[in-house]
Amino acid sequence: MDLVLDIGNYRLKGAFFDGDQVVESFVTPPEKVQLEKALEGKRADQVLISSVNSEAEPMVREVLAAQGFSFQMLDFSTLKVGLDVEQPEAVGHDRIANVYGALFHFPQNDCIVVDLGTAVTFDYASCDGRYLGGAIYPGIDIGAKALAENIEKLPQVDIAKPPLAVAKTTITHIQSGLYWGLLGAIERITFEMRNISSSPSDVKVIATGGLLSKMDPEEFAKDLSDFVDLIDTRLTLIGIHEIMKEKNKDA
């Protein structure tokens, strides 16, 4: 059994793997009590940790050691994936892991990963294992906050799909613009990105990220289905596990 952990600024995600199969996963705040509860009674032969939260790392190390796990921190500088960008050191660790996760699902295809978080990131991975670049778009929560803070008469709204695109109240006006605007951005940006391929129709689009758990999953998946081939909320964790497998082969 393998365990991978992804320590983010606001969330700590983990997954146990038996071979390539995710047998259990969890998402908690990066807090000691929550992590202890998630790992209680569990065992793993190897543990690999990816982190962008240096303040939470000592706590995670302490909990793992106390529960008898041996672990390694992921060194992204030694990976085989090619970073075909001007500043490879600036590419986020989660985005690199997403490339590995995408190529696990579609090893014969170029892929675009759409990660729906605080920001929406778009990342293009070639089937020969190169990260070719991407785009960053404001997340839907940022849009809602910006409208409420910068326009006096507009309220803060909950993120939700409105009943109608042509809305009837101020709140649903905002929800309509945010919801359909995000979907429109995803459709257009992925369309433009596909066109760098000699076979645009063969490029696969994968959606992941925290927003997927905030929306109505079935309804949101339906609205994404015209331009997204796969939704996988555990894509980053799968990518970290693929990196673990790569390192084991080289050992």
Rank of each mutant, 00 (worst) to 15 (best):
V23I: 14
K245H: 08
E24N: 09
Q87V: 15
S213P: 12
V91M: 06
F227S: 06
T208W: 10
E86R: 12
A102L: 04
L224Y: 08
E24W: 10
D6F: 07
G14R: 00
D94P: 14
I96G: 05
F122D: 05
T118K: 09
D18H: 09
A90G: 05
M59K: 00
K222V: 09
G239M: 00
K168H: 03
I159L: 14
G41Q: 10
P30G: 00
S70C: 05
I196H: 10
S50T: 06
R95C: 10
F76Y: 15
V91L: 15
A207P: 09
G101T: 14
D123Y: 04
I189T: 14
F16P: 08
G19I: 04
T233M: 11
Q34N: 10
D94K: 10
N109P: 01
D229A: 08
T78E: 08
G14I: 00
E40R: 13
D250T: 12
V157S: 04
I136C: 05
I151N: 00
D20Q: 08
V166I: 15
F71W: 08
V114F: 11
Y179S: 03
A66R: 07
D226V: 15
D128Y: 13
A185T: 02
I112A: 11
F69C: 07
A38P: 09
A160H: 04
Y131T: 04
F191M: 13
V228H: 08
E24K: 13
T121P: 03
Q34V: 04
L212H: 09
V60Q: 02
S51A: 07
N9Y: 03
L182W: 13
D84S: 06
A65K: 14
L183N: 07
Y10G: 05
F26G: 01
I49A: 03
K214H: 09
V85C: 14
P88A: 01
N195Y: 14
Y124H: 09
A125P: 06
P88E: 01
F71C: 06
L154E: 02
G181N: 07
V114D: 00
E219M: 14
L154Q: 04
P58K: 05
M244I: 03
E246P: 01
T233W: 12
S199M: 06
C111Q: 10
D202M: 03
G181L: 05
L74H: 01
A90M: 12
M1G: 11
F69Y: 08
Y100L: 08
E192K: 12
L74C: 10
T169F: 02
D123H: 06
F76S: 09
I49D: 06
P200N: 12
N98F: 01
E89P: 00
V228T: 11
V113S: 15
G8T: 07
E40M: 05
I174S: 00
G41M: 11
S50P: 02
